[in-house]
Design a protein around this nucleic acid. Structure first.
Lengths: 203, 203
DNA sequence: CGTTCTGTTGCGGAAAACCACAATAGCGCG
DNA sequence: CGCGCTATTGTGGTTTTCCGCAACAGAACG
């Protein structure tokens, strides 16, 4: 049983049923939506998922749905399905970050392989997002002064230099430094840079 | 005058001429090749450039030329031109990293804008490649022992811990440490991690 | 054999980092 | 006004980092 849920968004019930059956036969859970609006309004957000999205639908088009997803900051992998050969549309979708773009009729196994790969991408992205969110929360917990000291730390500066730069004593820098490490959950400046990445390029 | 050179690879002389003229009118240098093999054999490597590549040619196809370029480690941006609506081919090219995929007939201004964007990408990649090559050269200059010490350093370990781990004295670690910093052109462990990136994820 | 390179180690001294304990001041809020 | 938070600073002591100077050993190469 592959982890994650596949959202099938297509106004053709035959396609929805066929895809649902196909995915089930390969141990993949799915749920079907008969148009883009229904999907955007009803889909649960916080889990590993991907979307199979028909390009041409009444109401919102596939691309419009995709744009709305991205505007909402939803980064689920999206696999577009199309029954019409439209190269510029395919190019546009892929350049906007679509996971894949598949013409009907498609090869069943290949499509499911693509879906599984998309779910794996979604899982990886979820882990990455979690790390990123934790980092952001930690950064947000810093006081303004602590943030200034962190900036100097990741540039590799000595406490003495930081003290001069901020116009305070070295002891004060040491206090802020210790607080930064504590809040960021690191033990030293090396771990801090590894976590935060370099905020200042090396000259 | 936009920096860089555009390689026009197309077996149709009318297209080659028209594109050459179009680019010149926008201040972009170009050079034309009548087939993929000629381009691969004759194109000079070390400058900012991009490629406009026809998909369908006698001899090597556009995609085959692209594959060969990538196998050679050449990462010039490639803009494919095609006179045939072929969605799977477009999708394949883009997923392999093509810069763009354009159907004929195309909009002149849009194509040149795309070319200019591709040249900018090439320039940025050149700078990035230079940094990457310098880093690789520096890493290659390290002795085996120095490499081991570097690994421990970027994990944020104390000299005492590194000494225990490697079974040597702290003085030895200090010597290797100083040599690593010197060869990598950094002043301390923070700058080293910033340069090398974290080679060991924080637990 | 001499030279170069890599790896190792000790001594002693200086600089830098770290921190417990303690205290003060200013600001915002209920 | 009292409280909590942020920012600041000092003292004294410990640990860690840094390095000049010096020396030795083993391996590889011409």
């Amino acid at each position: 049983m592959t982890a994650g849920l596949v959202h099938i968004v297509d106004d053709d019930p035959a396609i929805r049923d066929a895809l649902g059956f196909l995915l089930r036969s390969r141990g993949v859970r799915s749920t079907a939506w008969d148009d883009g609006a229904a999907f955007l309004d009803g889909a649960p957000a916080p889990e590993v998922a991907c979307v199979i999205l028909d390009v041409r639908m009444d109401g919102l088009s596939g691309l419009e749905v995709f744009d709305i997803l991205r505007e909402r900051g939803v980064d689920l992998p999206v696999i577009f399905l199309t029954g019409h050969a439209d190269v510029p549309l395919a190019v546009e979708a892929l350049k906007k970050g679509a996971f894949d773009f598949v013409e009907k009729p498609f090869n069943d196994n290949q499509l499911v392989d693509t879906v599984i790969a998309a779910l794996e991408r979604a899982a990886a992205a979820r882990r990455h997002n979690r790390d990123r969110d934790l980092l952001a929360a930690r950064m947000a917990s810093l006081t303004p002064r602590e943030r200034e000291v962190l900036q100097c730390l990741v540039e590799g500066r000595l406490n003495k230099q930081i003290a001069d730069h901020l116009g305070v004593s070295m002891r004060t820098v040491e206090v802020h430094r210790a607080r930064v490490f504590e809040k960021m959950g690191v033990r030293n400046a090396v771990e801090l840079v590894a976590q935060v990445g370099s905020l200042a390029p090396e000259s």
